[in-house]
């Protein structure tokens, strides 16, 4: 049962990276200039999906707390600065997007847009750093606590954060290619293709940083999955590029979605049966089962929430269906 919950947790967090990922990508692309109309049109493209994207994060943390309380406490407090940075970013994006169009004055709007850009950057850096932090292990003591916070400041974590920023930017550009009116979409497809090269470089850099770190070489229990990770990312990016060249933005979007979702699965698989691998005392490593809530709690959560999952997914799907297709380029709506 723990495995099922662990998979569900992974699923929700991966879905958040895919859906929230394009929010942050679009957020970062607000910085590319082009005037207030263009920024507003980008936000209109995200429009109705924005609120529904972020709740995947809220739900992930809910599952983490309910089903894996011990892991929750150690994971979040053990990666304090990284999590706090991501959290500050998420907060800035959420408020910035919702409020940026409420002032009528152009300068105030531009200021809010900068809040969104900065927030998107922080959020992507933070989540990339967190995934990297899991792969490099933590100094978990026999008492079950993560000792100190120096373990997060590594070149690998930084490079992975940058790679995440590059990935979400490509993803966001492809999302806009799919959503904006055809005349605005074509230049974005070109931007996206150029960004793929940047993302490839960032992934290469993170791979090198990881390969050079003995902690990253030691922590994974199933190194095959960790080694697979860069290959998956490169393949997905190349597929996205090829699809953009053939004017198939839908395929490209699927590819970058995979590039954001699969790292979650691969990191989980590489560490299995652990979630936090101790770099100081192998016996202290926290297993998935050790981090999970006890049987009755998991059973209760299962009975109460699993029957509802179809409804949750159904209403999300309804949102995508109702607002599918391109925006029509008329007056921008709301955000």
């Amino acid at each position: 049962m723990e495995l099922a919950w662990y998979a569900l947790l992974g699923l929700f967090f991966a879905a958040y990276l895919v859906l929230g990922g394009y929010d942050y990508g679009v957020g970062l692309l607000l910085a590319r200039g082009g005037g207030p109309d263009r920024r507003r049109a980008s936000l209109t493209a995200v429009g109705p999906f924005f609120l529904g994207n972020e709740v995947w994060l809220v739900a992930s943390v809910g599952i983490l707390f309910g089903a894996f309380p011990t892991l929750e406490g150690e994971l979040l407090s053990g990666f304090y600065p990284v999590v706090a940075a991501a959290l500050a970013g998420v907060v800035a994006v959420t408020v910035g997007v919702q409020l940026r169009s409420r002032p009528t004055d152009g300068r105030a709007r531009a200021a809010w847009d900068r809040v969104v850009v900065a927030g998107s950057l922080l959020a992507a850096l933070g989540w990339g750093g967190l995934l990297a932090g899991l792969l490099q292990g933590v100094p978990l003591t026999a008492a079950g606590h993560v000792a100190g916070l120096g373990h997060v400041a590594t070149p690998f974590a930084a490079a992975a954060g940058v790679a995440m920023v590059a990935l979400v930017t490509v993803h966001g550009a492809i999302f806009l290619t799919l959503r904006l009116p055809p005349t605005d979409a074509a230049p974005l497809a070109r931007t996206a293709r150029r960004l793929v090269a940047v993302a490839l470089a960032a992934v290469a850099l993170a791979t090198i940083a990881g390969g050079l770190s003995d902690r990253v070489r030691a922590a994974p229990q199933r190194p095959l999955f960790a080694v697979l990770l860069p290959f998956v990312l490169v393949t997905a990016l190349l597929v996205a590029r090829a699809a953009l060249a053939r004017r198939r933005p839908g395929v490209a979007f699927a590819a970058t979605s995979a590039a954001l979702a699969l790292p979650v699965a691969l990191v989980g698989a590489a560490l299995w049966p652990y979630t936090l691998v101790s770099t100081t005392d192998p016996a202290a490593s926290l297993t998935v089962i050790g981090g999970a809530a006890s049987g009755p709690t998991l059973a209760l959560l299962g009975w109460l929430t699993v029957p509802l999952l179809p409804a949750l997914l159904g209403f999300q799907a309804m949102c995508w269906w109702v607002f599918r297709g391109r925006t029509d380029g008329r007056a921008p709506v709301y955000w």
């Binding site: 609120l51 809530a293 709690t297």
Partner: peptide, 22 residues
Amino acid sequence: FGAPLAIETLVAFFLESTFLGM
């Protein structure tokens, strides 16, 4: 203590925000 909070996020917030966006 985690159980009611997990239920809250899955049963309430998740739908609330999705509905509000629509």
